[in-house]
């Protein structure tokens, strides 16, 4: 069974069976759970933000009179039974974990930034959508909501599912080269800023299988650097 929005709502309404409750709680506490986070498009974000803010303001307004009526003495911890406190603490803990995870997920998924200032070693990172190996003196920024990758240096990307990216070598300016590429799950792709005497700041993007078409010296260097 999958944890759905309906199931979570059922959980919050206290209508879940013990089995369903256990499943939701395990899901909420599981850091490793595969989640497909689809970030809203940049254009929709403002509308979404405004809508959330409006909802919040309405909530605050409706809450205000009640707030003023609550006196310090009437809100005594002692007056609440212990079991209710325990449930509340557990609920706060679960909700807190959920919100923390969601926040983490959103920030990792929306924009991924990595810099490698080492002179010799690669920086390897595994994300939910891809693994990245960043060569020395390189950096990369991936906006997962737009599929834009800006990089400078050399990077190897291995996507965990089929995915389309628009790749731009930021240090390849001024003529801002961009290339749209459909990356297949499980394949190694290499993006490289390259200088040749005839074409400075060239951007090379290729699937690992095409490495052999590069100048032999470059091919061998990339194979050594990315251990492929």
């Amino acid at each position: 069974m999958k944890v759905t929005r309906e199931l979570i709502e059922k959980y919050h309404a206290g209508k879940c069976t013990p089995e369903e409750m256990l499943m939701v709680e395990e899901w909420l506490l599981d850091d490793e759970a595969e989640e497909e986070f689809i970030a809203p498009k940049a254009t929709d974000r403002k509308t979404l933000r405004d809508a959330i803010w409006e909802d919040l303001q309405a909530e605050i307004k409706s809450f205000e009179p009640e707030k003023t009526s609550i006196s310090k003495s009437s809100f005594s911890v002692r007056s609440i039974p212990f079991w209710k406190l325990a449930v509340a603490a557990a609920a706060v803990f679960i909700l807190g974990t959920f919100l923390y995870n969601s926040k983490q997920q959103a920030s990792v998924d929306e924009v991924f930034v990595l810099k490698n200032s080492s002179d010799t070693t690669n920086k390897n990172v595994s994300e939910s959508l891809y693994t990245i190996s960043l060569a020395p003196k390189s950096n990369i920024e991936i906006d997962n909501s737009t599929g834009n990758i800006d990089f400078c240096g050399a990077v190897l990307i291995n996507p965990k599912r089929d995915i389309e990216f628009t790749i731009q070598g930021t240090c390849a300016a001024p003529d801002e080269q961009k290339e749209k590429l459909f990356l297949k799950k499980g394949q190694n792709y290499i993006a490289l800023n390259y200088n040749s005497p005839e074409n400075e700041n060239e951007m090379i993007i290729l699937e690992e299988g095409s490495l052999t078409s590069l100048p032999p010296v470059v091919k061998r260097q990339l194979m050594e650097q990315f251990n492929i």
């Binding site: 060569a135 050399a154 490289l192 800023n193 470059v218």
Partner: peptide, 10 residues
Amino acid sequence: YHSTTNLHSY
């Protein structure tokens, strides 16, 4: 012989 620089050129 070759001189290579950080993958970017040689």
